[in-house]
Design a binder for these strands. Structure first.
Length: 871
RNA sequence: GCGGACGUGGCGGAACUGGUAGACGCAAGGGACUUAAAAUCCCUCGGAGGCAACUCCGUGCGGGUUCGAUUCCCGCCGUCCGCACCA
């Protein structure tokens, strides 16, 4: 009997214990049912979670529980992305060892996650900082190295000359190191690179087949890979006095059609030419230092004011030998793209135009709309960039005049090719993946540097290369490098004294294969091949849009690398991808500007917000992503204590579409809490009126019971579809609809009994509501299942079957428009033919009134949808 | 700067593939029950006009295509996200 209020505190803990004891969510690899792998991006153990972290786990859990009910063998694991910078910062700031800090955070967060009632197989838990995990990663590294997938070369990093350390882009603020405040320098370091560019074309092509990914992510990946078809060609060089200079300048362009609009050339500050000239030109060297202070972030470089330094050299125009283009070193030319050198055509590129205006260089339009007079076409402060659908033509361009852009490109490429100064070249924006980090808290790169043998991989028998626990964090720089003994080893090849690599791996390496490890998390080898081939790809991957490019692209590369090294046949790790929005919350500050926690403030009835302790005024800020620094966080513990986790889950899934940001509000959770209680009352009432469990379906059914069955099955069909499509907010709206219908029916039959056929339909309705709610509110559903007389676990029960016949009505309601405006509606037999519909529509009062005495010109009947009378 | 997305009542949002705009929820207002409160239940709820039937306007703004546009196209405005060493 369910006359009492539902007590989530008691019920939720009890069901979690039962699921645990019965190992309901543990997954066997030899289970014969069809597999389904659902995975949420694993968390970084930063400390405590707040309810905002819970949203994607809850979404994944709904899918996992639904698929389990649909008869799948579901893999739903969890682990920890446990290496990374914050642990090292904590070591410096709080004097806690990264290992200790990390494992304590993992313990805390695991307890918190368990409160959410997630159906996770915790026996498969992995932490990337565990030698058990990173030893396998080191083995992969060595094998990738052998397979030619990794190489070592130099690249530029942000260098803090005071702290003697490499800075991440986020640690560079206005060109200065975040801790030292010293101006950042660029420094060249030898680094390890994963050769992802070898797969650029393949990774690009395969995007087409990822049709269960959001289009925007696919587009972002395509743009990131950035394939372009262009021309690599060289300019002859001259000094200011016209004497020839030795080396030609090689540039890459995709707009060789605009060559007659060229008015300057520019090279990157890191270009060999700029370096060479800098050796003898102090002014240039100063300019190069200024550019270096911007750091390596592409964003910062591109947003900076366009500046250049004239080298005094000139490039000779390839088709007009008397035209000499001044050569600049320019801050907006990136060394990592193309040749690190460009020719500038200001009329048709905004950056070039900004630069030309600053240095008074000519702006010659060479592409214009088809119907424009070439003599009068000019470019002001906005470059003319031809867009799709606007016909353009070459002007002011000698032999190119009158050609289209593709024709002109073709002509230039042919001529340069023939002259031996240029070749067509496919270029990718994608760069190789630098994985070396000069930090302690990461997986050590398993190689040894020997003066005699060079670079020697650590033999498999010697793996893992463990991080030393006795590192120190009191000084800046890499703790592994200054450790007294760790790096001193004998060369595995020749036995001479040698040095370990002291760099560790980028944490993106850790997260590029964890989903594969989950398939056989305790395997002696990297993975158990049959387990990986069976489980992968992940059927539904869920995580933040911030990972749309890097993590997903690196993982796609890793699968291919693992295929090449013989670990799997799978190339694409994630069949389905979903990017969920964040949870936001208002922010609060007191009179002194300090952030306040939501529980420290009080919302008064008059709409004002005050500090709970002393009634002083509080400034309310707009909803922002929940973050510890702004204190706009709500803890799972507090929610579980007051409303129970089912209410929180329900609220997180309601209203806002899952891919959008969602605001956490007190009234919203209260609404969810009221629903939990309402469902509980409903189940109590149904259990009293419904026929007993196992009663056969009645032979005769009343219209009232049939109507209820229709409502039930429509909701079942709609909710099933919504969950399949991860439209949780719609699923919840449909549950409300069927609950409202049953509530209304119960209000009419409150006293006494109901007829057996209605009682039977009521049981079907009540049970269906409980079962379709179960993925969202699993504890309440489990409790309700008992109240309805069942002995088995709902978590193990099968999803109900839709009876398709109940979804089809005999009559339909067609809206009828006159000239596109709805004027009436027509209730008519589902199978009525066109002429019957037309006649009936014209007969309607609303249609007659709207028509007046205008003659009917046409009647459009869209079957099963709408009628439009055109007058 | 480059790339990507989004914009519908007081609020979150729904509307399948171009076919009844505002489902469902929150908030608000009114009422019932109660000694009272909580809880619960009922009613109203885009704007303007009208006793009413009903009419007109309305999906960021301005155009266009169409019998019909929140949906497609063009141009604006606004907000948010990513940019390679944060994860």
């Amino acid at each position: 009997m369910a006359s009492e209020r539902y007590n989530p505190r008691e019920s939720e803990a009890r069901w979690q214990k039962i699921w645990d004891e019965k190992r309901v969510f543990e997954t066997r690899n030899d289970d014969p049912r069809p597999k389904y792998y659902v995975l949420e991006m694993f968390p970084y153990p930063s400390g405590k979670i707040h309810i905002g972290h819970g949203r994607n786990y809850v979404m994944g859990d709904v899918v996992a529980r639904y698929k389990r009910a649909k008869g799948h063998n579901v893999l739903h694991p969890m682990g920890w992305d446990a290496f990374g910078l914050p642990a090292e910062n904590a070591a410096i700031e709080k004097k806690v060892h990264p290992k200790e800090w990390t494992y304590e955070n993992i313990a805390t967060m695991k307890e918190q996650l368990k409160l959410l009632g997630l159906s996770i197989d915790w026996t498969r838990e992995v932490a990337t900082c565990d030698p058990e995990y990173y030893s396998k990663q080191q083995k992969l590294f060595v094998e990738f190295l052998d397979a030619g997938l990794i190489e070592r070369r130099t690249s530029l990093v942000n260098w803090d000359p005071v702290d003697n350390t490499v800075l991440a882009n986020e640690q560079v603020i206005d060109g200065r190191g975040w801790r030292s405040g010293a101006p950042v320098e660029k420094r060249e370091l030898a680094q390890w690179f994963f050769k992802i560019t070898d797969y650029a074309q393949e990774l690009l092509d395969a995007i087409d087949a990822l049709d269960d990914w959001p289009d925007k992510v696919r587009l972002m990946q395509r743009n990131w890979i950035g394939r372009s078809e262009g021309l690599r060609f060289s300019f002859a060089m001259e000094s200011a006095d016209g004497s020839p200079a030795d080396d030609p300048l090689v540039v890459y362009t995709t707009r060789h059609d605009t060559i007659f609009g060229a008015s300057f050339c520019a090279v990157s500050p890191d270009h060999p030419l700029a370096r060479k000239l800098g050796e003898t030109d102090e002014g240039l060297e100063a300019f190069r230092r200024e550019c270096a202070a911007l750091g390596t972030s592409e964003e910062v470089i591109e947003r900076a004011e366009k500046k250049g330094y004239a080298t005094g050299l000139y490039a000779v125009h390839p088709f007009r030998p008397n035209v000499k283009l001044p050569v600049y070193v320019a801050n907006f030319v990136l060394m990592g793209y193309g040749e690190g050198a460009i020719f500038g055509c200001p009329a048709h590129d905004q950056r070039d135009l900004d630069f030309a205006r600053k240095y008074d260089l000519p702006v010659i339009p060479v592409v214009a709309p088809l119907d424009t007079d070439p003599a009068s076409f000019t470019v002001g402060d906005e470059a003319f960039v031809d867009k799709d659908g606007v016909a353009v033509v070459l002007i002011n361009s000698d032999f190119l005049d009158g050609m289209s852009v593709p024709e002109a490109k073709e002509e230039i490429a042919n001529r340069m090719d023939a002259a031996g100064i240029g070749t067509r070249k496919v270029n990718f924006r994608l760069r190789d993946w630098g994985i070396s980090r000069q930090r302690y808290w990461g997986a050590p790169i398993p190689v040894i540097h020997c003066d005699a043998c060079g670079i020697v991989p650590v033999p498999e028998a010697d793996l893992p290369v463990r991080l030393p626990d006795d590192a120190t964090f009191d000084k800046p720089g890499n703790p592994l490098d200054r450790h007294p003994t760790w790096k001193h080893v004998d060369c595995p090849a020749c036995g001479a004294k040698a040095r370990r690599e002291t760099d560790t791996m980028d944490t993106f390496v850790d997260s590029s294969w964890y989903f594969a490890r989950f398939c056989s998390p305790r395997d002696e080898d990297v993975v158990d091949r049959s387990a990986v081939d069976d489980w992968l790809p992940v059927d539904q991957y869920i995580g933040g849009i911030e990972h749309a490019v890097l993590h997903l692209l690196y993982s796609r590369f890793f699968m291919r690398a693992m295929k090449k090294t013989g670990y799997t046949d799978i190339e694409e790790p994630f069949r389905g991808l979903f990017t969920q929005g964040m949870i936001t919350h208002e922010t609060y500050r007191d009179t002194s500007g300090q952030w306040l926690l939501p529980e420290e403030v009080k919302h008064r009835d008059d709409g004002t917000v005050v500090r709970a302790s002393d009634g002083s005024p509080v400034t309310v800020g707009p909803p922002e992503k929940m973050s510890k620094s702004k204190k706009n966080v709500v803890s799972p513990e507090a929610i579980v204590e007051t409303f129970g986790v089912d209410a929180a889950r329900w609220f997180m899934l309601s209203d806002t579409p899952p891919e959008r940001d969602s605001e956490w509000t007190e009234s919203g959770v209260e609404g969810a809490w009221r629903f939990v209680q309402r469902l509980w009352r409903l189940v109590g009432q149904v259990s009293e009126l419904a026929t007993p469990v196992g009663t056969p379906a009645p032979n005769e059914i009343s219209p009232e019971a049939l109507a209820l069955r229709r409502v039930t099955h429509k909701a079942l069909a709609a909710v099933s579809k919504d969950i399949e499509q991860l439209r949780f907010n719609r699923a919840i709206a449909h549950i409300y609809e069927v609950v409202n219908a049953v509530t209304a029916l119960l209000a009419d039959t409150s006293n006494g009994k109901v007829a057996p056929d209605l009682g039977w339909a009521l049981r079907e309705a009540g049970e269906t509501i409980v079962r379709i709610s179960a993925p969202m509110v699993p504890h309440l559903a489990e409790e309700s299942w008992r109240v309805l007389g069942h002995e088995n676990l709902l978590a193990e029960a099968h999803w109900p079957e839709v009876e398709p016949a109940l979804l089809v009505e005999d009559t339909i309601t067609l809206p009828v428009q006159v000239n596109g405006k709805r004027r009436d509606e027509l209730i008519i037999a589902r199978d009525a033919d066109q002429s019957a519909i037309e006649a009936a529509a014209l007969d309607l009062v609303g249609v007659q009134r709207a028509l007046g005495d205008k003659p009917v010109r046409k009647i459009i009947v869209v079957p099963q949808r709408i009628v439009n009378v055109v007058a």
